[in-house]
Amino acid sequence: MTRRIKWIFALFAVLAAFDVAALATLMIVRPPPGAAISWKGGSTGTPDIGGPFTLTATDGRMVTDQTYRGKWLAVFFGYTSCPDACPTALSNMGVALEKLGKDAGKIQPLFITVNPDRDTSQVMSGFLESFDHRIIGLSGTRAQIDATAKAYRAFYQLHKEQGATYTVDHSAYFYLMDPDGKFADVVEGTTPGEQMADKIAKLIADRPT
């Protein structure tokens, strides 16, 4: 094999590795498939996102979507040992709540674990102590988590083949639901808290009373 041919094969190998990495990233941050919406705020149809759920709060209370009816919801799916996306998103939400001032009482942020096998109520409580106390952690059985994630079109994939310290790929959005439980918009967890607050405040202000 000539040096030129070897170089071409090496180039293809690098490109293939890049494509795999890019695909993995897209699986985490791209919008749920089939949702006829623009993540910038407009819509081209009625997105079928959200729906009934029954989960357990970290204090042991059984809650449903009806528990929070009358409030805006900011729903985030993640897990407590997440290395960066979840802490970043929850920190940004904490900043947003502070900036919202009195309007913060109109929104309920929810952190729903996608890894209930490891994220017990005690683990969830300890994790959330590092963030704003108004963020409520929810868990449930695997079937309950699967059903809720499906309703919100939230992606996640557990990599248990990695062993005890396995990671989880997951969507990195807050799903914003209006007080009637209808989908309003999404905001990326990486959005700075000030911008996140501005977006939420506009949604609240623009909603007919």
Rank of each mutant, 00 (worst) to 15 (best):
L55F: 02
F12K: 06
D178R: 05
R118W: 04
W39S: 10
A10W: 10
A104L: 02
S43P: 05
T165P: 00
V63F: 07
T58H: 05
I37Q: 05
D117A: 15
E194H: 12
Q162L: 06
S81L: 06
S121T: 14
T141K: 13
I49P: 01
V123K: 14
D178G: 03
T209E: 12
S43E: 12
L55Y: 00
Q195H: 12
N92Q: 13
P116Y: 09
F9G: 08
L110S: 01
D180P: 00
F111P: 01
P31M: 11
D146I: 04
G60I: 10
E194F: 14
I8V: 15
K182S: 08
D103A: 13
H170G: 03
T209F: 08
V20S: 11
L203Q: 11
T141H: 09
R69L: 14
I8Y: 05
Y79M: 03
D169M: 05
W72C: 14
F155L: 04
T54M: 09
M196K: 03
T80Y: 03
I200G: 06
L73V: 08
A164T: 13
D19N: 10
P47M: 08
S139T: 15
G181E: 07
G42Y: 10
S125Q: 11
K102E: 09
K71M: 11
F111H: 03
K71D: 13
P32N: 11
D169G: 07
D185V: 01
R30F: 10
R61I: 01
Q66P: 00
K102P: 14
G70W: 10
S91P: 00
G137I: 04
G181M: 07
K150H: 11
T56V: 14
R142N: 15
P179W: 04
A201G: 13
R3Q: 10
A35C: 11
A197M: 06
V95P: 02
Y175V: 10
